[in-house]
Design a protein around this nucleic acid. Structure first.
Lengths: 333, 333
DNA sequence: CTGAAAGCGCTTACAG
DNA sequence: CTGAAAGCGCTTACAG
């Protein structure tokens, strides 16, 4: 515990500079010296003090991931993927739950954690991405989620309009004509972007828009999906298909359907968005838009580290996450 | 960013000591001085450098939570609760995914993270809790999960034997006579402890033990539960009820049942353990053992902080998490 | 290649 | 109450 660099140096019979060189993998060290130092490190069970290193270097090799809630399956899976991607590069991820609170998101932007972290991967809910400018933060930042024109930050996101178009067209392709959307009032622009793709598809299919079929939001949880589905079923003319803007709401919608004595896809076909693990196990299993979370994690981390190292391109970068439409039982796959 | 304590002091016209006193809420500061300092802090948008503070004080107000995988719903929900509990006390939680790897768990015990963290809440999978001794770690540590006699650390856990007894007796109480257990080979002792409660209940109910009905492990995921259920259904004499040692396996088991054209609770009643959010939304909804995660989180954090502050009791403490049996559709509730 | 020394930004005895 | 100074454990010019 109290082992210091100088202890290692004394033990190995070299200067602290040499030990530091070995630890940081600098050149110009003979194999013999290196071996001697490494032996001393092992004998003393030495680990560098990251506070001291970070204070001196101005770099900690910590990055933060700020998400609305880590218990939400999508964010939990994403967090796990980002942690793994960072670990491969020697970086530790600190997960910050904003709980969608504006104050907590503001803290993130202010470069929270007292300058400990080197940069932030941020999935905003309350703060509109378009309103985030570089003036708000002192640290490199990569935004996740819907892309907004005019933003000033690097961005990694699915093409939500296109994906929503595809999801809706899938419902059209299986013969549905009265297609609802759940989650249109969702936070941080998700609802409006996905609705755009939904409406585009209806138009392309020659179907009329019906405001009564656009429901839900701002909540994006299971109970919100269930409530929205109940609302739709109470309509004089209920839908024969529903596009839920995330899987969590779709799972709630499936449950509401069951509770009403109906089933998917027979009475109402249901499609979600995110491809969370649990969707595969529900009965019926959930058709969904499956964005590549590993790809997203790898690229978000790489982009942020480029910025931190100062090796990123000068321009803002926008990366588009690949996705596929995964057809399962809830739409009759 | 480059604002330092001394800048604030200069701005406020006081010494750095006084600014430090204000920030750390020390006594003997006039309201006037405090106001002056706080104004300077606000004007300069100053945030203390945690690396410097941590280096000097030997305390960072960071704790680590080491879990097998943060994407697993139980650990995600637990992590969220622990983060919240810690935040209330001004503590930041760093989540570490060990992925059940012995090497990663070893790192945790070695007091990973270069002395940044003040203590660890550890949910081991690979390392047998009984084998963890204080000699292995330099930091205060609180263990989660099954309690083992002879351990040397503070512990917070459900009484798994009793809870498993209750779960099994519930199946008996609804008239089931051929009751299987899934997950008996589970890691870190969970499987054997829960099997103990299961067997005790069968005995109390006057039912014979059948080794063919004790399956599963070491995997505790949805697919493992599904595979175990298929195995049980292939038996010459399949069970009429199954106690799954966690909800994730129970969800897989439900799915396997559906795939076989059977249903719960009619053909096979199913009960889980953990009460993860998703279990409420499956069809049928899942009967389960519901441990109080908020209670667990609050107490684990409080216990750890007591140790860190040196105010904990001298003896090792064992806290038992309250739980309830939550009856839902999968056992005919 | 190595050594001696400064300094990152705090906190904390120590004097006043 | 305040000020001047040391020191936490590193890294990094600077001389050799």
């Amino acid at each position: 515990m109290a082992t210091r660099l100088s202890d290692v140096a004394a033990r190995a019979g070299v200067s602290v500079k040499t030990v530091s060189n070995v630890i940081n993998d600098y050149p110009h060290i003979t194999a013999r010296t290196r071996a001697k130092v490494e032996a001393a490190i092992a004998e003393l069970d030495y680990t560098p003090n990251v506070s001291a290193r970070s204070l001196r270097k101005g770099r900690s090799d910590f990055i933060a991931l700020a998400v609305p809630e880590m218990a939400s399956p999508y964010f939990a899976e994403l967090g796990a993927a980002i942690s793994r991607a960072a670990k491969k590069r020697g970086i530790t991820v600190l997960i910050d739950q904003t709980e969608g609170e504006a104050a907590a998101e503001k803290l993130v932007l202010d470069g929270m954690r007292g300058q400990l972290i080197d940069g932030i991967i941020f999935s905003p809910i309350t703060t509109a991405p378009a309103r985030i400018t570089s003036a708000d933060t002192a640290k490199p930042l990569v935004l996740l989620g819907e892309r907004h024109p005019g933003g000033t930050f690097d961005h990694v996101a699915v093409d939500s309009v296109q994906a929503s178009f595809d999801a809706t067209m899938h419902l059209v392709s299986i013969g549905r004509r009265r297609i609802a959307a759940i989650g249109v009032g969702g936070g941080a622009g998700t609802g409006s972007v996905r609705r755009k793709g939904y409406r585009k598809a209806l138009k392309a299919a020659g179907l009329a828009l019906d405001p009564a079929l656009e429901v839900g939001g701002p909540g994006y949880h299971r109970e919100d999906g269930a409530a929205s589905m109940r609302e739709l079923l109470a309509l004089p003319e209920p839908p024969d298909a529903v596009f839920c803007f995330n899987d969590l709401m779709a799972i709630g919608a499936l449950r509401a359907l069951t509770d009403a004595g109906l089933s998917a896809p027979k009475d109402v076909a249901v499609i979600g968005f995110d491809d969370i693990e649990d969707g595969r196990y529900h009965s019926p299993s959930l058709t969904t838009i499956s964005a590549d979370k590993e790809w997203l994690a790898e690229n978000a981390v790489a982009l942020l580290l480029d910025r931190i190292a100062g090796t990123g391109e000068a321009d803002r970068r926008d990366l588009t996450v690949p996705y596929t439409l995964t057809i399962r039982e809830s739409t009759g796959g």
